[in-house]
Design a protein around this nucleic acid. Structure first.
Length: 481
RNA sequence: GGCCCUAUGGUCAAGCGGUUAAGACACCACCCUUUCACGGUGGUAUCAUGGGUUCGAAUCCCGUUAGGGUCACCA
């Protein structure tokens, strides 16, 4: 196998979309799997859509995602420049070469004339009007300063075919393809042309991109052929969808890598999840490192149909990653969320982390899990009733009274000691351990669910606060009996 | 509308002519349990449709239906 070279060629139009990131990932995996080279190229031929700072977003996203390009604007590998706008002179030269070889021609048609070519569906198909212009006339009109474009000259007969690595054999009748513009009247190349020229010049031999190019690829092949260049291999990828009809896109929100990071997802989890959207490893393994993906990635496992993005599954995967975090790492990621919760600046984040690690799927869930520590007040005493544990309000009340009796004089305020003492108290009272812990937990948290049991919360709250809450709840319960 | 592509549970998906049609998420039940989680066990649920080919079809072929893409001086 020849030395593999793949590329990711985004347009700097803003944030990095999840779909683009997946395309990028696959291109990276394919290159690295074969010890090849992964190239980053910026396609900014459309000045109108250029967004300031977008290139930096691309760098930072790749970095966070763990995708390291071997060549790019910031890493010269001898195939530069890697920014299309800096390659401008090249394209016209190659377009002229293509004209000479018969693969393209100058066109002077005005937008007005083109508008008259619309068919009943509003589809414009160029009629090769300018193909018949003589060389002399073309020269003369160019010299006169008349605006022009250069169009690809596609045969009107025959069929163009190629084999896509994921979709298999694709064949498109030549008559169904239009003579597309290669060089715009502003002298800039269109994507169609710049892409082919750059891919060839940069020696890209595996072109990995979205399916939207599947049916126009024969056109690109026709250009490779006309130039006498070797065609690359193609791997087209089905889109990631929001639902059965709509593609995942900025318009529907949350489609950007950065958005998910902001929501409290770990970059590795996002990358892992999107790798699995549209590709399934032979091993059936789901949680995998970049290294494991490299080893297992293969074209066979790439699906042909669109995949619907399922955030619930990504949440689960993220939770799996969080469970493996050390307490310190968890605190590092979680601190911003602690800071925006009601307990900001209070409590020991490390202690909380221990309780939270197995119960957190995404970091932004943290505030609602810890707010009960500060938010304490009246609650529905019916919550004391617990059928499965056979707890009634009467039992709960006697438990709370007993706790108020034994806790004030208890000195060893740590989890194990409290637990041991309370279990003994339960025995003394002739009830099951669950019947003492459950009412106590409720009494000091006022919350139906908390990230930890009664004694863990008691330690967190401290003795004084625990007793204050206990008294409050006991009185509340008494008043409602 | 022309052309190209796609079709397995709610979602991601395995499957490559013979399987009780994997697995994961979600959901439900049970177990564990100091709540909630975690963990464990089990369960509900899928081959779009009609024709072929074949002893035998989720798998191959054709039609239908549905969906996506494309038909820009966007990429």
């Amino acid at each position: 196998m020849e030395k593999v070279r793949t590329r990711f060629a985004p347009s700097p139009t803003g944030f990095m979309h999840i779909g683009n990131l997946r395309t990028c990932l696959y291109a990276y995996l394919w290159a690295k799997k074969h010890n090849g080279t992964f190239v980053l190229r910026i396609e900014d031929t459309d000045q109108e859509r250029y967004v300031e700072g977008a290139v930096d977003v691309i760098y930072s996203t790749l970095k966070k995602a763990g995708i390291n390009h071997d060549e790019g604007p910031d890493k010269d590998g001898g195939y530069g420049p890697y920014i299309q706008s800096e390659r401008k002179p090249l394209y016209l030269k190659y377009a002229q070469e293509l004209v000479e070889k018969g693969g393209a021609y100058y066109c002077f048609c005005t937008k007005e004339r083109l508008a008259t070519l619309k068919d009943e569906n509003g589809i414009t198909r160029y009629d090769k009007h300018c193909l018949s212009l003589s060389k002399e006339e073309v020269q003369q009109r160019i010299a006169a300063g008349e605006p022009y474009v250069i169009r690809q000259n596609i045969p009107t007969e025959g069929v163009s075919e190629y084999d896509d690595m994921v979709f298999g054999h694709i064949s498109v009748p030549n008559k169904d393809m239009e003579d597309e513009i290669l060089i715009k009247s502003d002298g800039m190349p269109t994507y169609n042309f710049a892409n082919v020229v750059d891919d060839h010049l940069m020696n890209i031999n595996y072109v990995i991109r979205g399916v939207e190019y599947l049916s126009s690829t024969p056109k690109y092949n026709l250009m490779y052929d006309a130039f006498g260049w070797e065609r690359p291999h193609y791997m087209h990828l089905s889109p990631i969808m929001k639902d059965a009809q709509r593609k995942l896109s900025k318009r529907y929100g949350d489609a950007n890598f950065e958005d998910f990071i902001a929501k409290g997802y770990l970059p590795e989890a996002i990358v892992n999840y999107i790798a699995l959207l549209g590709w399934a490893p032979k091993s059936n393994q789901e949680k995998m490192t970049m290294q494991e993906m490299l080893e297992q990635f293969d074209v066979d496992g790439i699906s042909h149909s669109p995949s619907i993005f399922d955030e619930a599954k990504m949440r689960w995967l993220n939770g799996e990653y969080i469970k493996e975090l050390s307490v310190d790492d968890f605190v590092k990621y979680a601190t911003p969320y602690f800071e925006q919760s009601k307990i900001a600046g209070k409590y020991d984040y490390k202690k909380l982390a221990e309780l939270l690690i197995p119960r957190t799927e995404i970091f932004s869930d943290i505030p609602e899990k810890v707010n009960f520590l500060e938010e304490f007040g009246e609650f529905d005493v019916e919550m004391f009733e617990h059928k499965k544990m056979k707890i009634t309000k009467e039992i709960a009340l006697s438990v709370l009274r007993k706790c108020e009796e034994v806790l004030p004089s208890f000195e060893k305020w740590d989890n194990d000691s409290l637990k041991e003492m309370l279990m003994k108290t339960a025995t003394d009272m002739g009830i099951k351990t669950g019947q003492i812990f459950l009412p106590l937990r409720l009494a000091i948290s006022a919350a139906a669910s908390t990230p930890g049991g009664a004694t863990e919360l008691a330690v967190l709250l401290g003795k004084e606060e625990t007793l204050r809450r206990l008294k409050f709840s006991r009185e509340l319960l008494e008043s409602k009996m």
